[in-house]
């Protein structure tokens, strides 16, 4: 048994996702409090593994691990966890982490907490349950635990570094797998699919006219985001219907939803209320959107947008 913390990182197309760095950063903090090591685990090849601020990085590569494969990855991680007996195994509560964390928990009989947003040095975990309506504080029993953490819970910078990875062969035989990766599916062409964007700048009637869309588009580009909107903007023909968020439009769940001149009608909220970070700029301090947004500013959207463009 050790006080180490294993972080199961995730990567795609040669890039680690932000949550990997967030977890490594948090793991470092916890490990130093617990007197163990923060170990980043990189499964699969095609990626530069020397990018974490971890105390150690284990890079396991194998022909069968080239692409995410829940069965293969699960076997590798299970073997590794058995071998290392860490105090805590951290996953992201993401498309990949969600396939592995609970499975590993049941497989090893180790407690698992999901929807984790906070972890204390006593490994007390704060979980955002019931669609964000309740925060639960839970304490895992025993001397090993699994945490599946929501993306964006911890700062990413703390996890960035250059620890040299140790390459290792797969600890288990990956010869006869039932799951086979067939092919990758890329997003379709055509207009931007706002439902699959991680960042959205969304404009409402406050944008005033078609001629102002350009400004919003510029801001979106500067933020590496896509442009979406409320229904009146579509009705007015300022943006195509594919960009409409809401009841009669599309439901989106980006990491960032920056709202410029949208009042926050329920029909609009229906499409975006589960966005992770909602920032609203509106001249009306009583606009209902401020009851929903995480951050708000009573300000003119044009002035704010232009000022932001200067800073980006």
């Amino acid at each position: 048994m050790s006080n180490d913390i294993l972080v199961i990182t995730e990567h795609m197309d040669g890039k680690f996702s932000d949550v990997s760095f967030e977890l490594v950063g948090k793991a470092k903090e916890l490990a130093s409090a617990l007197g163990g090591q923060a170990v980043a685990v990189v499964v699969g090849g095609g990626v530069d593994a020397n990018v974490f601020a971890s105390d150690a990085t284990i890079h396991i590569d194998d022909a069968a691990l080239g692409q995410f494969n829940p069965e293969a990855y699960g076997k590798v991680i299970e073997a590794l966890v058995k071998e290392k007996s860490p105090r805590l195994v951290m996953f992201g509560w993401t498309a990949t982490g969600m396939d592995l964390a609970a499975w590993l928990s049941a497989k090893l009989g180790v407690p698992c907490a999901a929807y984790v947003k906070e972890i204390g040095s006593d490994l007390m975990m704060g979980c955002q349950a019931y669609g964000g309506k309740l925060m639960a504080e839970v304490a895992p029993e025993g001397d090993m635990a699994i945490a599946a953490c929501l993306a964006g819970s911890f700062p990413a910078e703390a996890g960035q570094g250059s620890t040299a990875a140790t390459a290792t062969a797969s600890p288990v035989d990956l010869g006869s797998l039932k799951v086979k990766f067939v092919e990758a599916i890329k997003p379709e062409g055509g207009d931007v699919d706002i439902t699959s964007q991680t960042k959205l700048v969304s404009v409402g009637r406050g944008i005033g006219g078609k001629e102002n869309i350009e400004l919003a588009e510029e801001l979106a580009q500067a933020l590496d985001a896509a442009l979406s909107c409320s229904r009146p903007v579509v009705d007015a023909g300022w943006l195509p219907r594919t960009r409409q968020v809401g009841k009669s439009g599309l439901k989106v769940k980006p990491k960032m939803y920056l709202m410029l001149g949208i009042s926050g009608a329920p029909e609009h909220l229906e499409g975006m209320k589960s966005a992770e970070l909602i920032i609203a700029v509106n001249t009306d301090k009583k606009a209902p959107i401020f009851n929903v947004a995480h951050y708000g500013a009573t300000a003119d959207l044009f002035e704010v947008a232009e000022a932001m463009l200067e800073l980006l």
Partner: peptide, 28 residues
């Protein structure tokens, strides 16, 4: 689950956005 529930409560800062004050430039 091997989890002990220590506390369950609505998240603290809901109901209203945290307002960012200042001039548009400061807000930006």
């Amino acid at each position: 689950s091997g989890l002990t529930f220590k506390k369950m409560a609505p998240p603290v800062a809901t109901g209203h956005a945290e307002m960012i004050d200042g001039s548009p430039k400061e807000v930006a």
